[in-house]
Write a protein that binds this DNA or RNA. Sequence first.
DNA 1: ATCTATGTTCGACGAACATCGAATGAAAGA
DNA 2: TCTTTCATTCGATGTTCGTCGAACATAGAT
Lengths: 111, 111
Amino acid sequence: MKQLEHPCQEALTLTAVLAALSDSVRLDIVRELAECGERGSSAFDCDIANSTLSHHLKVLRLAGVIQHRKEGTRCFVSLRPCMERAFPGLLASVLRFHPADVRAEAEAPTA
Amino acid sequence: MKQLEHPCQEALTLTAVLAALSDSVRLDIVRELAECGERGSSAFDCDIANSTLSHHLKVLRLAGVIQHRKEGTRCFVSLRPCMERAFPGLLASVLRFHPADVRAEAEAPTA
DNA sequence: ATCTATGTTCGACGAACATCGAATGAAAGA
DNA sequence: TCTTTCATTCGATGTTCGTCGAACATAGAT
């Protein structure tokens, strides 16, 4: 069973992590993983092509944010503990804030 | 004296802030501002063209991270307090970590 | 009024990115 | 073995980004 490559902890860079988190699709993915733990990679409800999702997961993986675990033909992703060691508290500091659209919905009058 | 435009606090988005911080030149600028306070915009010692520096400052300004203050022909930039209100603690959480090259220098043997 | 110093904007360029569909790969099941 | 299923990779396309030099704008000095 071929596993995907993960960079070692020393190779993680702050700018790469921030770049990985600066996309709304990827930020949603990370948020979901932080709240619900490991998920099958097909369990994300974003309206994008499968190949695009795979690309975003790769970006997050190469930045050190998530890890892939293959099991048969399926693939599970979760937050990478290594990330917390390299940049302790960073992820929590980012996920504390909700994305712009959610804030807008919460603040805007319903009408 | 024409001042430059700054977005209002409600318009700031998390992804835009992260994207603004995901460039090493801009991260260095923010780090310097956080440590030394307001600076003249020509006082940054990055080896880039003036127009490129201006571009980076614009990205940071539009993301809400910094503010511009013009005084005569000169221009001073500083961290924007509004940023701390919109995303309290975020900047500190990011700046706590040093950029990759600095870490590499600190960890790698000199030989 | 003209010059000078300081910054911003414009136009252009290559590099990197987000996206998609198609092709490929890998593993389980018939 | 053949098929099916799931995910990654490839190739293509349009967009965005970082960078530069040149042109412009503004304010002070001569």
